[in-house]
Amino acid sequence: MKIPLILSPLDSEHEVAELAKLGAKEFYCGIIPEEWEIKYSPSSIDRRPKGKAHFPTWESLQKAVSIAHDNGAKINLTINEHYYSLEQYPIIESFIENALTAKVDALIISDPALLLFIAEKNFPIETHLSTGGVCLNINTALFFKDLGVKRIILPRHLNIDEIKKITSASTGVEFETFIFNSRCVNVDGLCTFQHGLSGKKVEYFYKNACMLPFNVQAFTKREVEPDKKQNAIKKQRIWERVHIDDLPCGACSIYDFSELGIKALKIVGRGNESERKKNDVKFLSTLLSMLSNETDKKTFRIEAKKLYNKTYDRECRYHMCYYPEVMES
């Protein structure tokens, strides 16, 4: 049994010390270079539209790294768009050089072409495969290990048994799993919708495409009873009725992940208010301390549910559970 570390989102150097004190051992963050924003907006270098979810300057990021290191924590930087064109590579190269100067600990990457670029240029930096790299099996883990990644962030779209298969193989890489916030509807690396096409004022372009209001019609090859068809239509509209970020949680699975040797638990939430980030880290830290006290799995899950219900004032819900098979076990 290995206790995983907490990986927290980070948007400012002012957040580092307190989040580290509360238990975050690693952070991940983003920055959009000004040149990129001018040339390529609304596409983003890290799939998040410019705004609260990014450090404003390399200097501020450098300060954050320094504070993190002083607190025994690490900072990983996202450069995880699914692909970049040849024309964009001068900005990418300068981004990596700035990241090295800022002494960030790792880059989070989706695109195999960028991993190849980093290897070819011999940039002395650790790389982690973003969930956008879509590692769903052992062979994909081996494929990306050959491309130099030290850690793989597994997709949200794996159940615990499937994660177990991957992590129990001798792949020689570390694994990170999602544990809190933003239970994305689609497989990240296979979703070609563009997020953040506009500001909040233009709702239909601001909202994620999966959450737009849709008029749904169902067509069937074979005749079905009207009630069944209506049920089928209702289900198609779930993501416009239920916000995918209504505090989704996988906390009950932490016990399983510690048994599987998962290295890091990822809290989604770049752009969230600092208070929310603190609350999320504190919640998970409390659960990790239960693991240290050698609680058994059943008790841990009961306590995790209780703590979630109390901390977030939410019942556990299937569609907001990262690993819902735990709810059924």
Partner: peptide, 29 residues
């Protein structure tokens, strides 16, 4: 087709309903 599955979104069992159903989604956005 089952009413109780309305909010059951995850890697869930299926009866290959995809063979029978196609959904058309239209939105002003």
């Amino acid at each position: 087709e089952k009413e109780e599955n309305e909010f059951k979104a995850g890697i869930t069992p299926c009866s290959k309903e995809c063979d029978n159903y196609t959904f058309l989604l239209q939105s002003p956005g």
